[in-house]
Design a binder for these strands. Sequence first.
DNA 1: GTAAAAATACTCCGTTCGGGTGATTTATTA
DNA 2: TAATAAATCACCCGAACGGAGTATTTTTAC
Lengths: 229, 229
Amino acid sequence: MESKEPEKKIKVAIVEDHDIFRKRLTELLGFYDELELVFTADSGEACLKHVFESEPAKMPDVILMDIELPGISGIETTFQLKEKFEEIDIIMFTVFEDDERLFESIQVGATGYLLKDTAIDEVVSSLKEVREGGSPITPSIARKLIGMVSKPKNDNSSKSEPEVVPFDLSPAEIRILEQVIDGKSNKEIAEEVFLSPWTVKTHIKNIYKKMHVNSRAAAVRLALKRDIV
Amino acid sequence: MESKEPEKKIKVAIVEDHDIFRKRLTELLGFYDELELVFTADSGEACLKHVFESEPAKMPDVILMDIELPGISGIETTFQLKEKFEEIDIIMFTVFEDDERLFESIQVGATGYLLKDTAIDEVVSSLKEVREGGSPITPSIARKLIGMVSKPKNDNSSKSEPEVVPFDLSPAEIRILEQVIDGKSNKEIAEEVFLSPWTVKTHIKNIYKKMHVNSRAAAVRLALKRDIV
DNA sequence: GTAAAAATACTCCGTTCGGGTGATTTATTA
DNA sequence: TAATAAATCACCCGAACGGAGTATTTTTAC
């Protein structure tokens, strides 16, 4: 399609509070002609300021975002950015592998998820990949991601009945979740299902774990959005 | 971590019905000393036969599995293999990107998912990665995977819809209700809307009165059912 | 310009919730 | 049968919640 043109540069931004790491990364990315660094920031607030005040020519295509930041986190920053600038791709860039952050990052709209020990070459190809519609993910992270959508117990293989993707809730848990959605208290639920309030509480805690939420309201929202009930 | 031993070879198997492709792949993988090809198969049945009759020394660590196969599919083959040989990692290797197959592959226990145009070097590193607990996934595939767990974005594309508010909630109240639906606490909401937590609480109490509920969960359910947000 | 209404801020109080931990019983399955 | 997993019940603690009431400021309406 485009033959003559010198491949538009990818505009990149770095958000990273660790000075040494940020500068090193800046330096390394500088070696790649196909990239153009439009800004670096050492906090989520600074990043938001940059983006919101950018002239179009300096608007980043991709942001490498650290998760751990002073002030608002990289996840919160991503969320706020995505609200207004849907088109910016954000790659979470972190030393953390924990599921919670991964899940939240995805929820708020991160496109990729790389560990900081990723080789620079791979970081650069990741930057290109997101621009081509891909989602570069460190393999060890990808496995966790798969764990989130895979169902451990599934016997009908050829059955083409995908249904919804629930969070692997047991029937008892689903029953309790329904009561939660109805706005009932643990005690009320206990009476309804003939269990002790403590058991109900335990079930609800397990439900939270599986759904990656930590409040009734959040659980209700997720359950309804995903048609679990 | 791994220092002493001369790195045990990774035992690999290839399941691929296209002769040319299979032979080419066999040849290429032969250049890598760290790999040992234990068998190739041109069908799911042949693969199962190989594995079930393998002596332990020839049991593959990783199988590169084509999805499209004559007879039983690669997905079905994977399912049957995983039933008995949980420890074998299986990388789906395909030209297809469609969601259904990706989803099914994950359901039956595939560890990785690569497109056939993946460079041979990356295939080899993928083989190593699965042995180290990772899940190599082609970026374009990973994005679909993310789509499965990410929350649906609220698209304000069709603004022409007549906005109906079943309850006479004020704009401020609706704003706060939205935060409640997001599972936020009063304090978090207060920070978000620049009000004191007490004011937020007052608003929420008023919302409850108007909606005739008395808990966040119930409010969330009603709001979503009635499309207030 | 004034009165009514809405928005904001705060206090007290009792209850519920969510997180953590651990014991006991009951399937399930190897 | 033995080992495991799942379900049930229990307690502690601090934070958050929900109810009721009061008061000040701002906005709206007449």
